[in-house]
């Protein structure tokens, strides 16, 4: 839907984790704050203010993006998936693999890591170690040194997650 005259607040319709809803948001509200504060989806995190850390990574129309570098109003009409939307009754193989390979410690970067990694796996189901590193380059982790995270994602591709 186009917006022909400048506005400072808008009613947006978004489908988040399969549920469509309408919200009035100020234009200046970032998608990450919309998700966290307006929709109460607090699994998406914030670790920086320069678009560097990737803790806020979500899928916007199926593509991994940093939700701190998108306005909520830009998601109007779009489909968003957050970490809360990954698992159904059971954890996904990727989530289980993070658990089994000790791919998380404090868990703060984990939602963003999972969203970046799941976007990669959707495109490339059996990534190499280097491909995983490239896919996770936009996500900072300060606890693990990345080794176990990379191992966890590679293992999913090899079908090793239980």
């Amino acid at each position: 839907m186009s917006v022909n005259e400048p506005i400072t607040s808008a009613v947006v319709t978004v489908t988040v984790n399969g549920t469509e809803s309408e919200h009035e948001v100020p234009v200046r509200r970032l998608l990450v704050h919309f998700l966290r504060d307006d929709l109460d989806l607090t699994g998406t995190h914030i670790g920086c203010d320069t678009g560097s850390c990737g803790a806020c990574t979500v899928h916007l129309d199926g593509v991994a993006v940093k939700s701190c570098a998108v306005l909520a109003v830009q998601a109007d009409g779009a489909t968003v998936m957050t970490v809360e939307g990954l698992a159904g009754e059971e954890l996904t193989p990727l989530q289980r693999s993070f658990h089994e390979h000790h791919g998380l410690q404090c868990g703060y970067c984990t939602p963003g890591m999972l969203m970046s990694a799941s976007a990669l796996l959707a495109e490339n189901p059996s990534p190499s170690e280097d491909e995983v590193k490239v896919a996770l380059q936009g996500n900072i982790c300060r606890c693990t040194g990345y080794w176990n995270i990379v191992e966890a994602v590679v293992a999913v591709g090899k079908g090793e997650a239980a």
Binding site: D37, Q95, F98, G107
Partner: peptide, 21 residues
Amino acid sequence: VPRREDKRLVEGQGVFFDDVK
């Protein structure tokens, strides 16, 4: 023993201070 903290954290259900309203 695999960590029991992990399940909530990989589901985005951890509770960090900024999640509390």
